[in-house]
């Protein structure tokens, strides 16, 4: 597969001296979903804005679909759909008109059939003749998505699509994202919500203070960084971890009914056998065993 987005050595220093991006390089393959995680002010929006032509990069090169965003901006930008972080819409305009505008603006021929499909997909068809100001916040966000999709982009940028959105709409959006992926659309989204990245991304990038500090396949990331937890439930509560088990990394639950053992999946596996042996030697009765993998959230927090 070819690279749909290719960023090399991108830096951005705003006029007030604020450095928002520092030497960021990043490639995204066609049809891939990349989630960019990072705290507020990390530079996520600046990165997207630089690609879309809203911010002038201080250094570096960006290619979209093989086209340089500076020297060949027409070809590059016609591939891009952008859903901005802030809800920016003309309040007095009708939904259908704003969507038609977006399509025309990108130089596409009028195609109301296609726009109907997009609006239906986003449950906006009933509202096509409503004015923007009559819509709820969630619907406005859908209109922004519809506008971005109106010109049939090959790369979709979603800047914090879940900010201020209810659970139902978030699920719908995830579904839409996977439908778009199946059509080969490349998707780059930024988010605060780790569960969002975990649910839909193929790859995860973490931006902190303008630097891309991590970029990895989601599964590999969870596997590589992930610790597993073995939860050992006991028949009857104990007051403390028995002395002969102290050399293991064990944590007793508050009610004394279970012992948690943290271990690395890369570590030697006979540790668990030893632990279980020693537990039975210590005369503890096991009622249940359960393992769980740490989430991206825990990894994320440990990184920053």
């Amino acid at each position: 597969m070819t690279d749909m987005l290719s960023i090399t050595g991108l830096s951005k220093r705003y006029n007030d001296g604020q450095v928002a991006l520092e030497n960021v390089s990043l490639d995204v393959k066609e049809g891939e979903i990349l989630a960019l995680l990072g705290p507020n002010g990390a530079g996520k929006t600046t990165l997207i804005s630089a690609v879309c032509g809203l911010v002038v990069p201080s250094e570096g090169h960006i290619k979209v679909g093989g086209f340089d965003t500076k020297s060949n901006y027409r070809s590059a930008r016609s591939l891009i759909g952008l859903v901005p972080q802030e809800i920016s819409l003309e309040p007095f305009e009708k939904v259908i008109n704003t969507v038609r505008f977006s399509r025309g603006l990108f130089g596409k021929n009028p195609n109301d059939n296609y726009l109907e499909i997009v609006l239906r997909q986003l449950s906006l068809w009933d509202k096509k003749n409503s004015k923007i100001m009559q819509l709820s916040g969630g619907m406005k966000r859908r209109v922004l998505i519809a506008k971005a999709l109106a010109h049939e982009p090959r790369v979709l940028f979603l800047d914090e699509p879940s900010a201020g959105v209810d659970v139902e709409l978030r699920r719908e959006m995830w579904k839409l994202v996977s439908e778009l992926k199946s059509q080969g659309v490349t998707i780059i989204l930024t988010t605060h919500y780790i569960e969002e990245a975990e649910a839909i991304a193929d790859r995860v990038g973490v931006i902190s203070k303008g630097k891309l500090i991590l970029l990895e396949e989601k599964k590999a990331l969870i596997k590589r960084m992930g610790q597993k937890k073995l939860e050992i439930s006991l028949h009857s509560p104990i007051a403390a971890i028995p002395a002969q088990l102290q050399h293991f990394q064990l944590f007793l639950s508050d009610d004394g009914m279970s012992i948690n053992y943290m271990y690395d999946t890369k570590g030697s596996t006979n540790e668990i056998t030893k632990l279980l042996n020693e537990i039975s030697n210590a005369d503890l009765q096991i009622s249940d065993l359960q393992t769980s993998q740490s989430s991206l959230e825990e990894i994320f927090v440990s990184l920053i």
């Binding site: 879309c52 032509g53 027409r74 920016s88 819409l89 506008k147």
Partner: peptide, 17 residues
């Protein structure tokens, strides 16, 4: 007005000169 309410992003990111 589009600058003020933010909708200018669309025009500035469009493939036009």
């Amino acid at each position: 007005f589009p600058k003020f309410i933010g909708t200018i992003y669309e025009v500035l990111s469009a493939p036009i000169n």
